[in-house]
């Protein structure tokens, strides 16, 4: 491991972030299937103390779970169900394409979008492992897909961070391909956290998200963008070079700005409708945002919206 990678790992695992958001639990909105009893709901009804619901008895149900008191009062057979808690499998999917190299023109600092994605991922992974969940990472890098399977060991965190630091973003986007791969490879229901600018055709993304959902995974997506990209704040004529290998474009920003922004809004709208359709928690994250606040907001939103799976 090189010195820069070590620095990157240290930066990713910022204790200040953890201090701020450590008290908020990372919760799954949909039930997960885990091997260890944990703080996440399991789709299996179990024998925990958490009451879930009554339902009519059907032949074959375990008679031990029949609520005799209700039967005594109403002469009807009800089965009392309890929720079974399980542990969470967190898979962080990071987009390592060329467009993630962008670090902003307007005072956003030296961080690239990829770096922000890694920091977010590392912090979330750290949170998950601390509460006993398993965290793994899949990076859609240029020419390769880096996969680190989920583990619950605290030392696994350094493995994740090391892999993230090793990969240099570049090349065209392979995110949809990787997402399909993740959907297939992740056997049990998991929480998939996508870190990407999502600069890709919405149709492909929709298929990938639907695939994830179909496979029972819960998906969150952090769309990491810079304000340059969302607001297109350029004054003078600029040659825009595609980091993903496309043809460069020389444009007078004043002339193309409105069309650019319209395309941006269209794309954003498409993403949002996909997110709704595929039940994806889509979050727009700007490069100049505070990581701790972003994560805190994410966690709080999840904790508040705990639903059923």
């Amino acid at each position: 491991m090189s010195a820069t990678e070590a620095e990157s790992i240290a930066a990713m695992l910022d204790p200040a972030v953890l201090t701020r958001v450590g008290q908020i639990p990372l919760v799954a909105r949909r039930a997960k299937i885990g091997s260890v009893s944990g703080r996440h709901r399991s789709p299996h009804r179990g024998s925990s103390v958490e009451f879930a619901e009554y339902r009519d008895y059907v032949p074959g149900d375990d008679l031990r779970r029949l609520d005799w008191r209700v039967y005594g009062r109403s002469d009807r057979h009800f089965v009392k169900e309890f929720e079974a808690d399980t542990n969470l499998r967190l898979v962080l999917v990071i987009d390592g394409s060329g467009s993630m190299r962008y670090s902003g023109q307007h005072g956003a600092g030296p961080m690239t979008k990829y770096e922000l994605a890694c920091r977010l991922a590392a912090s979330i992974a750290q949170l998950a492992i601390r509460q006993g969940d398993a965290a793994g990472v899949t990076i859609a890098a240029e020419g390769e897909t880096v996969r680190v399977p989920p583990r619950r060991r605290p030392s696994h965190l350094r493995v994740l961070a090391g892999e993230m630091a090793r990969v240099a973003p570049g090349g065209p986007t392979r995110l949809t391909e990787v997402l399909h791969d993740v959907a297939e490879r992740t056997g049990r229901r998991a929480l998939i956290c996508v870190m990407s600018d999502l600069f890709m055709a919405p149709e492909g993304l929709r298929d990938a998200f639907q695939h994830l959902r179909y496979r029972g995974h819960e998906t969150s997506a952090f769309q990491i963008v810079d304000r340059d990209e969302s607001e297109f704040r350029f004054e003078e004529a600029t040659r825009f070079v595609d980091p993903e290998g496309g043809a460069p474009v020389l444009a007078d920003p004043s002339m193309v700005a409105s069309r650019y922004l319209a395309a941006w809004r269209r794309h954003r709208g498409a993403l949002e409708s996909i997110a709704v359709a595929a039940d994806v928690d889509l979050r727009e994250t700007f490069l100049d945002e505070d990581i701790a606040s972003t994560i805190a907001a994410y966690l709080l939103a999840r904790a508040g919206k705990r639903g059923r799976g």
């Binding site: 962008y102 990209e229 002339m255 193309v256 395309a263």
Partner: peptide
């Protein structure tokens, strides 16, 4: 002016191309 411009590595090319392509004719006219 055409010769003098800065170069930016730009990830969000898809939006730019979208805007640029559709307005190229109008842009020339303008």
């Amino acid at each position: 002016h055409r010769r003098r411009h800065r170069v930016v590595e730009w990830g969000a090319m898809m939006f730019l191309l979208d805007g640029e392509r559709s307005s190229r004719g109008r842009q020339r006219l303008r």
